[in-house]
């Protein structure tokens, strides 16, 4: 039973099935992710948000099913991935600048091209700290900026972000959200953002994918169409509050009630 694909779809996930130690996590899971939009994924702890994006990004094998990008396989697609734990994701033996160049080197770019692209990134990110330092010499926010720059170096068609800001302090988080939004507006890269913070999930998203407890299904997809760029004032707008209230209602229904029942 093949589901039809919506017209502006970028990623089609069909029949995704995965279980751990005999306990099903996803069974025949279908999902369309729109092109050139930010899709936030929100759901209770352990419902399989990381597992899903890791499977789609090819970091984890699926038991069954497939994910196609504009009809192409993963191998034919350029993707970027930003890990939650920047400390474990950057290469500490390489200077920040060489971390950023790494995916370009892998893609076989010449030294000149690598330098030009990093310079471009430095300009667009308005980087003020010294990229010739090693990652462990940078602050957490600076390290995560470097990881984001690294993930963008190759102009990915899709960018995956797994709780990218959850290890940063509040001020840095606000700054990084807006930075991410700037990048999105400049590039219109399809982004998939896992977030634990409902405000953040809604604030950045064109749509919020609400997941249930495992075995995981889509509880609802909540649209948020506020104009971009969004500002801190967006957080107090009616549209924002309506979208957030709707998410909360879904969350209460799908998570809390079951929680009490079990």
């Amino acid at each position: 039973m093949l589901k039809r694909t919506a017209p502006d779809t970028h990623i089609t996930i069909r029949g995704l099935t995965k279980s751990f130690a005999g306990h099903p996590l996803y069974t025949n899971f279908d999902l369309d992710i729109p092109k050139g939009q930010i899709t936030s994924i929100f759901g209770p702890n352990g419902c399989g948000k990381s597992t899903m994006i890791n499977m789609v990004a090819g970091l984890l094998p699926m038991d069954a099913g497939e994910a196609l990008f504009d009809g192409k396989t993963l191998a034919q697609t350029v993707i970027g991935y930003v890990f939650q734990n920047y400390r474990d994701a950057l290469f500490p033996w390489k200077r920040a600048i060489d971390n950023i160049k790494y995916p370009l080197r892998i893609a076989g770019k010449s030294k000149g091209e690598c330098d030009a692209r990093t310079e471009e990134l430095v300009q667009s990110f308005d980087i003020r700290f010294d990229l010739n330092r090693y990652p462990y010499e940078l602050s957490g926010g600076q390290q995560q900026l470097v990881s984001i720059m690294r993930s963008l170096a190759v102009h990915p068609e899709v960018l995956f972000l797994d709780e990218p800001f959850s290890a940063l302090d509040y001020e840095m988080t606000l700054f990084m959200r807006d930075k991410l939004q700037d990048i999105f507006e400049a590039t219109k890269t399809t982004m998939i953002l896992v977030s634990h913070d409902l405000d953040e999930a809604v604030y950045l998203a064109d749509q919020v994918l609400m997941l249930t407890r495992r075995p995981t299904r889509i509880a609802q997809v909540v649209r948020f169409d506020a104009a971009r760029p969004r500002h801190p004032e967006t957080l107090t707008s009616d549209a924002f509050n309506r979208a957030k209230a709707q998410c909360l209602e879904v969350f209460q229904r799908e998570v809390r009630t079951k929680d009490i029942a079990t």
Partner: peptide, 26 residues
């Protein structure tokens, strides 16, 4: 070794040999 860096290299398209020599080894 924590697997995140190897995963990061893989997701950036590094071949298994490159992951081995450029990440796992270090």
């Amino acid at each position: 070794a924590r697997k995140t860096r190897q995963a990061a290299a893989r997701v950036m398209g590094a071949s298994p040999l490159r992951v081995m020599t450029g990440v796992t080894l270090l």
